[in-house]
Amino acid sequence: MFYWLTSNIWTMGQQYVVIRNSPTPGSDAALAREARLAKRHQDKEARKPSNPLTALNEITVTEIETPKRVTTQRVQPVGKNRAKKQNGQAR
Results as ranks from 00 to 15, higher is better:
N57Y: 10
E34C: 05
Q42H: 02
A29T: 13
H41Y: 03
K48N: 05
N21I: 01
S50R: 13
I19Y: 14
A35I: 12
K44N: 08
E34Q: 05
A32Y: 01
I19F: 13
D28Y: 09
N51L: 02
R33W: 08
L37M: 05
R33Q: 15
K39T: 01
N57F: 13
R36M: 07
K48F: 00
D28C: 07
L56A: 12
A35H: 08
S22L: 15
L31G: 11
E45I: 13
S27F: 06
P52L: 10
R33I: 07
D43V: 00
A55Q: 11
G26R: 14
N57P: 00
A32T: 09
L53P: 01
A46I: 09
A55F: 15
L53D: 08
G26D: 02
E34N: 10
R47C: 05
N21A: 11
R47E: 08
T54E: 08
G26P: 11
L37S: 04
G26V: 09
K44A: 12
A29H: 00
S22Q: 14
H41Q: 08
A29K: 02
K39C: 00
S22E: 10
L31R: 08
K44T: 04
K39L: 06
S50I: 06
R36A: 12
K39I: 02
Q42R: 13
S27Q: 01
A38P: 00
S27I: 01
